[in-house]
Simulated scan of single mutants.
Amino acid sequence: MSLIENVAAPFDKCAIVVDGELPVGLAMNAAAVLAFSLGDSYGQGVLGTDVKDRDGQVHRAITAAPIPILRSDAVGLKALVAKAAADPELFMVDFTAVAQAARDYDDYSRNMGGMSADEHVYVGLALAGFKKAVNKLTGSMPLYR
């Protein structure tokens, strides 16, 4: 059974956690990749509807769920990945340093295939699930600033 099948949809809380020691450009890249991946993998019911402004211009649907971008460090991210993976109420997308450094998806896939789980250095993580489960792991984390 995949992790997606374990989590009831739609979720009511999500969060992205990024390594606060990354340069700003790499941190924003990690957040964008994770948000895109989360939406594509588990986007059921997360988008609102298209809206119109007073002039009738249509603005395409955006996420109806707030997505706080939180900060941790590499050690905290590794611990968070382990805790999230063990919680069947959470959907998780991780983003590693290997993924961020890859030139293309084949490079990423090849490099990940040569690594053990213990070798991963995480630069970000996206979580989705019910509010209680997400807050349990991220509630005390500071916002990324």
Results as ranks from 00 to 15, higher is better:
Ala9Trp: 08
Ile16Asn: 01
Ser37Thr: 07
Gly124Asn: 11
Leu127Gly: 02
Leu70Thr: 08
Gly114Asn: 11
Leu80Glu: 02
Phe36Glu: 12
Val51Ala: 07
Asp53Asn: 13
Val81Met: 09
Ala97Pro: 00
Pro142Ser: 15
Asp87Val: 10
Ala133Trp: 03
Ile69Met: 14
Tyr108Phe: 12
Ala35Val: 03
His120Cys: 09
Ala27Tyr: 04
Gln44Ser: 14
Ser37Cys: 14
Leu70Arg: 05
Lys132Ile: 04
Val123Glu: 02
Gly139Trp: 05
Ala74Val: 07
Val81Arg: 15
Leu47Pro: 00
Val24Met: 10
His120Asp: 06
Lys52Gly: 01
Ile69Arg: 02
Gly45Cys: 03
Glu89Trp: 06
Phe11Lys: 13
Phe36Met: 15
Lys132Tyr: 01
Glu21Tyr: 13
Asp12Trp: 00
Met28Leu: 15
Ser140Pro: 00
Leu3Ser: 13
Ser140Ala: 15
Asp73Ser: 13
Gln57Ser: 07
Asp107Glu: 09
Phe130Lys: 15
Asp107Lys: 11
Thr96Arg: 01
Thr138Val: 15
Tyr42Asp: 11
Tyr42Met: 11
Ala128Phe: 00
Asp53Lys: 07
Gly113Phe: 06
Glu21Ser: 15
Leu90Tyr: 10
Val17Ala: 02
Asp106Leu: 13
Val51Met: 06
Ser116Cys: 02
Val75Phe: 08
Gly39Glu: 08
Ala79Tyr: 01
Ile16Cys: 01
Ala133Tyr: 05
Val75Pro: 01
Leu38His: 06
Leu34Arg: 02
Met92Gly: 10
Ala9Glu: 05
Gly56Leu: 07
Arg60Gln: 12
Val18Phe: 03
Ala30Cys: 08
Asp94Thr: 11
Asp40Trp: 11
Lys78Tyr: 01
Lys131Ala: 14
Ala9Ser: 10
Thr138Arg: 04
Leu38Met: 15
Thr49Gln: 14
Lys13Ile: 03
Ala30Leu: 01
Ala64Gly: 09
His59Thr: 13
Ala86Trp: 08
Ala126Tyr: 00
Gly114Pro: 00
Thr138Glu: 04
Tyr122Glu: 02
Thr63Phe: 04
Thr63His: 06
Ser2Ala: 12
Arg110Met: 03
Phe36Gln: 14
Phe36Lys: 15
Ile62Glu: 13
Asn29His: 12
Ala27Lys: 06
Leu26Asn: 03
Val98Gln: 08
Ile62Pro: 01
Ala86Leu: 11
Glu119Pro: 07
Gly76Gln: 11
Thr49Asn: 11
Thr96Gln: 08
Gly76Cys: 09
Ala85Ile: 06
Phe91Thr: 07
Gly124Val: 01
Leu143Phe: 09
Ala128Cys: 07
Lys52Tyr: 00
Arg145Gly: 09
Ala102Asn: 09
Met1Ile: 14
Asp40Cys: 13
Asn29Tyr: 14
